[in-house]
Design a protein around this nucleic acid. Structure first.
Lengths: 159, 159
DNA sequence: CTATTAGCCGACTATTTTAGTCAATTATTT
DNA sequence: AAATAATTGACTAAAATAGTCGGCTAATAG
């Protein structure tokens, strides 16, 4: 099992999409600047998210990504799975052949742990996150910062 | 967060110790042959387990390792922590400074997940595992295989 | 006392994964 | 036609994993 920035970035980016939906497609450049994730890296991640039918893309100017279905129907575990970060804690992929074709001493423990994590992450949808107070607060702060930097750029350009 | 063979090996080896305690110290060679873990790698892991006061060692012939305290007082989370596999799912070590010194959009989600995993693994002691039916079954199978290979070696040696 | 056993220690290494970068291409819209 | 933005593929530095190897030290059995 691993949970690194890859999976965290994917969930963060999907949540960003869920928070800003309704105003047409969101470009990766927007997500990149809001969430401070490298654009090229986001491209890699969204290729996987698209292949897993979690987002759909619109090319060309004004294009970007949108959730492929309602945010209440997209669960965190699906996002993490999509970028190849398995939530499985066993070494054998749950097959139970970890010790000479049979279960190792701790196989069932890791199975239980996997079930635990899976249940937790599959019980939370993007809509659930959007509704959370802490998420809303962080999102509002990010939008404020965003507006400030746009204003700053305007002043710079105007001179 | 990561849970790889390192943490799994450590827990498996500690459980092996718990299962075979009472007959003096257990050598790493024994654990290695029963659990099919490289002896040199076990040495590395037990150095950390010893530094974290989870086992004590006895040198010389007949020596080996023993649990440093009752198996009911050693929890899985301690073993995993000892070999430097953190159960923390956040990217910031729980500090909440993941986005320009402030919490990132998904910080609280990863905190909740960390709490979940931590609660699960700190609720299970080595004694709990020893008492489990599936662990006992696997352990008995391993002891049978072990006896067979000793018998085989005896016949080989006798000729 | 000496040979053996078994823990102890540090250095080294191959492989894999992470977290990206970079360049080129394709589709779309203004 | 120009600009935008997704799409693709190849490449890479750094870190972690999962070990190996050799030599050393302590203790005990004979």
């Amino acid at each position: 099992m691993r949970l690194t920035t890859k999976g965290r970035y994917a969930v963060t980016a999907m949540l960003d999409l869920a928070l800003h939906e309704g105003r047409g497609p969101i470009s990766l450049a927007d997500i990149s600047s809001r969430q401070l994730i490298s654009l090229s890296y986001l491209e890699q991640l969204f290729a996987k998210l698209r292949r897993n039918d979690l987002v759909k893309s619109v090319r060309g100017p004004g294009g970007g990504y949108q959730l492929s279905r309602d945010k209440a129907d997209i669960y965190i575990v699906q996002v993490i799975d999509a970028v190849n970060e398995s939530v499985d804690a066993t070494g054998c992929g749950g097959k139970g052949d970890c010790h000479e074709g049979e279960a190792c001493l701790t196989h069932h423990l890791w199975c239980d742990l996997s079930d635990q994590i899976h249940a937790f992450l599959s019980g939370i949808s993007l809509a659930d996150l959007v509704a959370r107070r802490d998420v809303q607060e962080v999102s509002q702060r990010q939008d404020r910062v965003r507006l400030q930097s746009i204003e700053f750029e305007r002043i710079e350009a105007t001179g």
